[in-house]
């Protein structure tokens, strides 16, 4: 049996989320193959071949995959699964916006269910996944021949990026579906660690009051801690920060060593995105704020006084 992991990449480097997905694949038992579909992505294929535990890297390099469109990528994955003639038992991708975009297409084209955002593997056909914003965990069993799965990356350790020596094999290109065209991307440029990979996250909510306050108060602390910056939906909706800062049920799911929630009340949708953090600190002037119910350390204080003090003290 072969477990196919779809590499997430930008044609230049392999994204860390792929390493967590490989770890999930390793728990299924079987040979792990990584599919690298890209354009000018030789460095990605080379990186994938070095990942510990990977038996094979399947490479298709063509212009159709330059923008990683869901239509072209899904068609390619389906072609690879069909060409394997039943040898591929599982198809895995990280539950990032990229993985969530592509994998349901793959499942529908294979006429199988998709199992979304698994957090644990019980056996090769039985998985645990959160429902209702993580307020319940469902154990589900799949009856389909091919299991198509997205993996919550925070629930699985990253596989070692070095140490493997997988065979690299070219596969036939499934072609350009010609359905969509990338006009452009506006990516947030930041010297800070990515939210999904950060060890420490400093996150701000509506209590920040304004975009200026958010940046003036939280950035010095994040800089000092080497932390990523996050936000609640309220802060994003109010325009303090861009959408990709959002932590929560429908934003990013994070589980850092330390999560500092500043001026965040703690709606269940926000808690869904951060409650698996190792240590949670809440700073809020409202002693009744629900965030204190999940915080390891709570400080009832005016954030505009407490955060600069904290920045000075660490």
């Amino acid at each position: 049996m072969t477990i196919l992991v779809i590499a997430e990449h930008d044609n230049a480097s392999l994204k860390g989320a792929t390493l967590n997905t490989v770890s999930a694949a390793a728990k299924l038992g079987g040979d792990i193959a990584i599919l690298v579909a890209g354009s000018g992505a030789a460095a990605v294929a080379a990186a994938a071949a070095k990942v510990a535990g990977v038996a094979k890297v399947l490479v298709v390099d063509a212009a159709a995959f330059a923008d990683q469109s869901a239509e072209n990528l899904a068609a390619q994955v389906v072609a690879v699964v069909k060409a394997a003639g039943g040898a591929i038992s599982h198809v895995l991708a990280p539950a990032t916006t990229a993985g969530k975009n592509v994998l349901p297409r793959v499942a529908a084209l294979l006429d199988v269910a998709q199992i979304s955002e698994i957090v644990a593997i019980e056996s090769a056909d039985t998985f645990v996944r959160p429902i209702y914003a993580g307020n319940a965990l469902a154990t589900v069993k799949s009856a389909d021949a091919v299991k198509v799965i997205t993996v919550r990356t925070t629930a699985f350790e990253a596989a070692a990026a070095e140490g493997g020596a997988a065979a690299v094999e070219q596969v036939a290109e499934a072609g350009d579906q010609g359905l969509s065209k990338l006009v452009g991307r506006e990516l947030t440029k930041s010297a800070r660690p990515e939210l999904g990979a950060a060890k420490i996250i400093v996150s701000g909510g509506r209590g920040m009051g304004s975009s200026e306050n958010y940046h003036n108060v939280l950035e010095p602390l994040a800089d000092k801690l080497g932390a990523a910056l996050g936000a609640s939906r309220a802060a994003v909706d109010a325009g303090y920060v861009p959408n990709d800062y959002q932590v929560g049920q429908t934003g990013k799911i994070v589980a850092p060593q330390l999560y500092l929630a500043v001026g965040i009340s703690g709606a269940i949708q926000h808690l869904a995105g951060m409650k698996d953090s190792k240590v949670i600190v809440a700073i809020n002037k409202d002693p009744e704020a629900p965030i204190f119910q999940v915080a390891d350390y709570g400080l009832v204080a005016d954030l505009f006084e407490a955060v600069p003090q904290l920045t000075a003290a660490v």
Partner: peptide, 12 residues
């Protein structure tokens, strides 16, 4: 809305 920012697509 994608991880890292925004992306604009033209679709038929």
């Amino acid at each position: 809305e994608i991880d890292g920012g925004l992306e604009t697509l033209e679709i038929s």
